[in-house]
């Protein structure tokens, strides 16, 4: 289980997180929703240790993430970045097999390539893509490669940062389905941040809404539509009128 206790983070004068409390159960798919600039990405980066919270504690299976071997901790994670974040200096297969080409999970080059090809196949990409460079791929294909990289080392926890941003609705639907399948198939704990409600309905077991630096509402996806929270309702239905102020 991933547990966040009283997480706060301020950048300059902007207090982004104001005591976030959240528990993500093992093997569940949690989707964190919230408007742009509400700190969803910061929250994800705090869990990964890319951003250090000013206050609070994050534990994974009871162990504080700031203690113990950081490499061991990170080897349990896979992450799909919003823009793919593929390394444009190396071909697709090396991107996917990156973790297997050096460090503690190192394998032979042939083995790593075989794993990369298998993972690419899993996300619907053929071997012909393996030797191409990320810049030669479309946005949807880059997301798939990012997904293949996220699952390459068989992680226990996968993070998805805005997985459908920049994709057309059909490709977004394809990526959502792919994510749901992979999460179920691998039995991993998944944390997705998004403001795309079609992603929420396709991917989530549980939903948490981040608003004004705090978790406004959390519960199973089935309870989301009848939660009776005006903030959540406004967000889910995408209404301009409501308690959440929208700039016009």
């Amino acid at each position: 289980m991933i547990a966040l206790e009283e997480i706060s983070k301020t950048f300059g004068t902007n207090q982004v997180l104001r005591g976030v409390e959240l528990e993500i159960a093992t093997g569940r798919s949690m989707v964190i929703i919230g408007g742009s600039g509400t700190g969803k990405s910061v929250l994800l980066k705090c869990i990964l240790g890319l951003v250090t919270p000013d206050a609070g504690r994050i534990t994974i299976d009871g162990q504080d993430i700031t203690t113990g071997d950081r490499d061991v901790m990170l080897s349990r994670f896979g992450m799909l970045f919003q823009g793919g974040a593929l390394f444009d200096s190396m071909p697709v297969w090396q991107n996917v097999a990156f973790r297997l080409l050096s460090g503690r999970l190192r394998r032979s080059r042939d083995d790593a390539r075989a794993v990369a090809l298998a993972k690419l196949r899993r996300v619907g990409l053929g071997a012909d893509v393996a030797d191409r460079y990320p810049a030669e791929l479309s946005g949807g294909m880059q997301k798939r490669v990012g997904l293949a990289r996220a699952i390459a080392a068989d992680p226990e926890i996968i993070f998805f940062d805005e997985p459908t941003t920049g994709l057309d609705p059909i490709m977004a639907g394809v990526i959502n389905t792919l994510i749901r399948e992979i999460v179920t198939e691998l039995g991993v704990t998944a944390v997705t941040i998004t403001h795309d409600m079609s992603s929420v309905r396709a991917i989530a077991d549980d939903v948490a809404m981040l608003h004004a630096g705090k978790i406004r509402w959390t519960g199973p996806i089935g309870a989301m539509d009848d939660a009776g929270d005006p903030y959540l309702e406004q967000f889910v239905h995408g209404r301009a009128e409501g308690p959440i102020e929208a700039l016009r």
Binding site: K45, L48, G49, L50, R70, D71, L74, S75, F77, M79, F81, Q82, G83, A85, L86, F87, D88, S89, F98, R99, S102, G103, R104, L105, R149
Partner: peptide
């Protein structure tokens, strides 16, 4: 320019999450 672009496109963050 190369490292700056890697930073703004989150490739540096990706390196960190890949234990590098």
């Amino acid at each position: 320019a190369e490292i700056g672009t890697m930073k703004v496109t989150e490739q540096i963050d990706a390196l960190l999450t890949l234990s590098t």
